[in-house]
Computed example of a mutant assay.
Amino acid sequence: MIRHRRYAVPLTAVLLALATGVALGAGPLRDATSSASPAPRVVTQAAAPGYGDAFAASVASRLYDRGLSRRPVAILTLPGSDPATISALAAQVRAAGGEVTGTYAVAGQLVAAQQKNLVDTLGSQLAQQLKGHLDAGLSTYPRIGELVAIAAANQGSAQAPPGDDAAAVRQSLVAAKLLAVPPGHPQTAPLLLVVFGSQTDQAIADGLLTGLAARSRGVVAVGPTRDANLTGLHADGVTRQVTTVDGSQTQAGRVAAVLGLIRAWRTRGGAFGASGADGSVPLG
């Protein structure tokens, strides 16, 4: 009997411990371990498609603050540029208080590498006719860029009637089917908005834009997001004189382009837009 009692005590203790454990698991300790509620679920909702464009459209007029008032703009389109984009850009220029003096269309021949002899010959002839107004050392595409600028732009602060030089250049470029000029002898403008389309040989784009910048007060070049030519202009240093803005297929990009024109009146250069090296929006 004594031996039985000696083992009964430990057995009773084990049973009590098990019973206590079950009770604890079903009681206060279980509540303690489960009282910590799970972390709150953060639900994020993507912005509705088109929100960025809608936002840009709604704030555009405040951002512009009539910054192009009494500042004429000529639009120069390159082959392959989208007509809807061109119309939308013109509308934004007017929304900023500006006036589009005319839209000039660069023909495919002017930027086609296989037509370089034609462009070079005509450029040399026109340079001679202008009696030293162009640097004799200019190469083919910077020279044709300056000639196109003489036809469409000026370096002043207002639109101006085309003089004899502009009239002669227009007539020659049209006759050679290198440039389409708007009807009615449009006046020249201090600001040029260049709309890129199909990809152009980068050396041609560099030369053309360099020439345009030399004969105008300010040049802004726009193109689709991550446009290869705009990227090349920055890589080749042309954006020291020419402002580039990509994303022209979006309302946000078009608003940024017009802000670029406002800025270009006093400050040249910079790469802006959806993937611009100098920021998204050309302010200041």
Rank of each mutant, 00 (worst) to 15 (best):
G279M: 14
G284I: 02
A47K: 14
V255F: 09
P83K: 10
A84R: 13
A274Y: 02
L259T: 11
G270I: 05
P38S: 10
L118R: 11
D165P: 07
S69G: 02
S280M: 15
R66Q: 10
A256V: 00
R6V: 14
L18I: 10
P224F: 08
Q202H: 07
V106N: 12
Q187W: 15
L78R: 15
G279V: 06
E99S: 04
S124T: 12
L134P: 05
N229T: 03
R70D: 12
A180P: 01
V255S: 04
Y64T: 13
V238F: 03
T121Y: 06
N117T: 08
Q128M: 08
P186K: 03
F272G: 06
P162T: 03
V111Q: 06
G270A: 05
A228H: 03
V42T: 15
R70H: 14
R62I: 04
L110H: 11
V148P: 07
T103M: 00
P142S: 03
V148S: 04
L118G: 00
I144D: 11
L11K: 09
R41T: 10
Y141E: 06
G273K: 07
L89H: 05
D120V: 01
Q159E: 09
S69A: 14
G197A: 07
I262D: 14
Q114V: 07
A13Y: 12
H234F: 07
Q114M: 00
S139D: 14
A91P: 11
V59K: 01
R254P: 06
D278Y: 11
A175F: 10
R143A: 14
G269C: 06
S69Y: 12
A160M: 13
A95M: 12
G270H: 10
F272M: 09
D227I: 01
A32S: 08
G98M: 10
A36Q: 05
G137C: 03
L16A: 09
V222Y: 15
G184K: 07
G260I: 12
D201P: 03
R71F: 12
S124C: 00
L179W: 12
V245T: 08
T12S: 13
A274T: 15
G223I: 00
A13Q: 04
V169S: 04
V148K: 02
D135F: 02
N117W: 06
A158P: 09
T225C: 00
L89M: 10
A176T: 01
P72F: 02
A113N: 11
V258R: 09
G276H: 05
M1N: 07
L15A: 05
P182F: 07
P161G: 03
